[in-house]
Design a protein around this nucleic acid. Structure first.
Length: 264
DNA sequence: ATGGTGGGTGTCCCA
């Protein structure tokens, strides 16, 4: 079974690319982030026509997460337990969607962007991650052999090699100790980065800013991850980052991240 | 040539 995650940065502007990618990638499950669409605007039919069941959660032009599956899609859940809210008026943002696909509990996650070290959005991001940790720990406590994949755009570079220049990021988010601690807490709760062993760094990234010619200059960040529960991690046979998809006109600023699981 | 972006409900906000 092949699963993947991809921040598409607007499904409406990227639908041709997503269709073409699905047609060539032999993917069974694809989690999307930043669909930037309401459910009404989401192109369900074009994806169903490719053989996928589709669950989407989108409230407005921001955020938005989806799960596509051709191996079943059951028990869809919008948001995780006690997920923090944001905004005025206070409300849940469309940042987490769970679904069971082929026996794997997939969570498509779009972790809040902290914006800057002084911004209240950073505290929101840390709180959101702490509650995700609590929810994910409980899923494993309830069933230690559960196959769970926490996938998506984490907006964190956990190691120094995950950014192109630590000096550039010295006063920026994504690499700060509190953010890295929040990521580590989820790892310590039992979830493993299953891609890194198959795509070692340095210089291996999943995101390149549109600005400043970051992609051709190979100045990226590794911020999109697939974290597997122990039972899922045991099934991983390979993984890759589809850097080719970042090339050319009309690319998302993120590349798809792909994981291959042994059949049961 | 020392600059160079691209989404969205757009002339501002968000990444």
């Amino acid at each position: 079974m092949r699963i993947a995650t991809w921040n598409v940065n607007s499904i409406r502007s990227r639908i041709d690319r997503v269709e073409a990618w699905l047609q060539r990638s032999d993917c069974d499950v694809l989690a999307l982030q930043e669909t930037k669409a309401t459910d009404e605007q989401f192109p369900f039919e074009r994806l169903r026509a490719l053989g996928y069941e589709v669950a989407h959660h989108g409230l407005n032009q921001w955020n938005g997460v989806a799960v596509l599956s051709r191996v079943g899609l059951e028990d869809v859940q919008v948001g995780f337990e006690n997920m923090p809210m944001w905004g005025d008026p206070l409300g849940a943002e469309a940042r987490a969607l769970g679904a069971t696909c082929g026996g794997v509990r997939i969570w498509s996650l779009y972790v809040p962007n902290g914006r800057s070290l002084e911004d209240p959005h950073l505290a929101y991001k840390l709180d959101w991650l702490a509650h995700l940790r609590d929810a994910a720990a409980k899923w494993l406590a309830d069933n230690p052999s559960a196959q769970v994949a926490l996938v998506g755009d984490w907006n964190i570079a956990p190691q120094d090699e995950d950014v192109w220049d630590m000096e550039f990021f010295a006063d920026k988010t994504h690499v700060s100790p509190p953010e890295r601690a929040a990521f580590s807490a989820i790892v310590e709760a039992g979830y493993t980065d299953v891609v890194r062993p198959h795509a070692p760094g340095p210089g291996v990234y999943t995101y390149w800013d549109y600005q400043q010619l970051r992609f051709p200059k190979r100045q990226g960040m590794r911020i999109d991850f697939v974290l597997g529960s122990p039972a899922l991690t045991a099934r991983v046979e390979g993984a890759s980052i589809d850097r080719e998809e970042r090339k050319g006109k009309g690319a998302s600023d993120h590349a798809p991240v792909i994981v291959d699981l042994a059949n049961l």
